[in-house]
């Protein structure tokens, strides 16, 4: 081995150590633990055979996909508005919109409870209107609201940067050719934003798949994958199931991210 090569290995050593400590070893351990239960390596099939686990998996996927789509829809409208309109207090509004970035999931959970919990603002409001108290904090709807609140600022920051970089002449050109506002949005604006939409949508999806703090705070009637893993691991000491579920969660999220990155890749090339 030449000395230059030896030096390169030396410099790369921390990277190998890091990869081993945080990536390879825990994953290997998870794989081993998952296969060490009473079902052995069939634990992976066992979680698929357990209707409750499958149901949880589907619910988590649906929730995450829903949150991603809702966040992107809201984020696109707000980002386009903020990128194109100048008004007094705009900078303040932008920084206020990114405030939730600072909150952990637990705090977001508290806020949902304050908003839509048993003693929440929405409940008090609907009661004052003579209706039943509106309470949805402790359900999937509460979790949906919490994740939306959690993801929106992340998506917004990315989309605003992308919206500001769009050449206004592109939309003017489309309009000069007779395109209606809706056609301009469909044919020019959204395709121009698509790399940012795919990238920030993937982040929103991954965050919602793995988020735990908010779900844990709202608790009780919510079956999402992260909660199930926590229950299996901490309360039932069912390490094999917890590990198998963890790997399933990781693989699915990773797969979706890889898929979108692939799409974003071609999207970026097309928009270049």
């Amino acid at each position: 081995m030449r000395s230059a090569d030896r030096l390169a290995v030396l410099f790369l050593a921390p990277l190998f150590a890091f990869a081993a400590a945080f990536f390879v070893l825990p994953l290997a351990e998870l794989v081993l633990v998952a296969g060490s239960g009473p079902n052995g390596a069939f634990e992976y099939l066992a979680i698929l055979a357990n209707p409750r686990h499958v149901q949880t998996l589907v619910a988590t996927l649906a929730l995450s996909a829903g949150v991603s789509v809702a966040t992107l829809a809201l984020g696109t409208v707000v980002a386009l508005f903020l990128a194109r309109t100048r008004f007094a207090g705009r900078a303040l509004l932008v920084s206020a919109l990114t405030l939730p970035l600072a909150f952990p999931g637990v705090v977001v959970g508290f806020m949902i409870i304050l908003l839509a919990g048993r003693q929440g603002l929405l409940g008090a409001f609907t009661q004052s209107l003579g209706m039943d108290r509106l309470v949805f904090a402790y359900s999937m709807a509460g979790l949906f609201a919490g994740y939306l609140y959690f993801s929106l600022p992340r998506v917004l920051v990315t989309l605003m940067a992308a919206a500001e970089k769009l050449d206004p002449a592109l939309e003017e050109a489309a309009r000069s050719l007779g395109a209606s506002r809706l056609a301009v949005l469909r044919d020019v604006t959204l395709p121009g934003l698509s790399p940012a939409l795919i990238a920030s949508g993937a982040i929103a999806f991954a965050t919602a798949m793995g988020a735990f703090g908010t779900a844990f705070t709202l608790a009780t009637r919510i079956d999402v994958l992260a909660m199930t893993i926590y229950t299996e691991f901490t309360l039932n000491a069912n390490f094999a199931t917890a590990s198998a579920l963890s790997l399933a969660l990781g693989l699915i999220t990773w797969g979706v991210l890889a898929l979108t990155r692939n799409m974003a890749g071609t999207g970026v090339a097309a928009a270049g």
Binding site: D167, A169, E172, A173, R175, L177, G178, D187, P191, A270
Partner: peptide
Amino acid sequence: LPIEKRNVGMVFQSYALFPN
């Protein structure tokens, strides 16, 4: 009338061709 109803052709300095 807004531009989309005027039936004019425009050519921009940046060309503004649709990249998609």
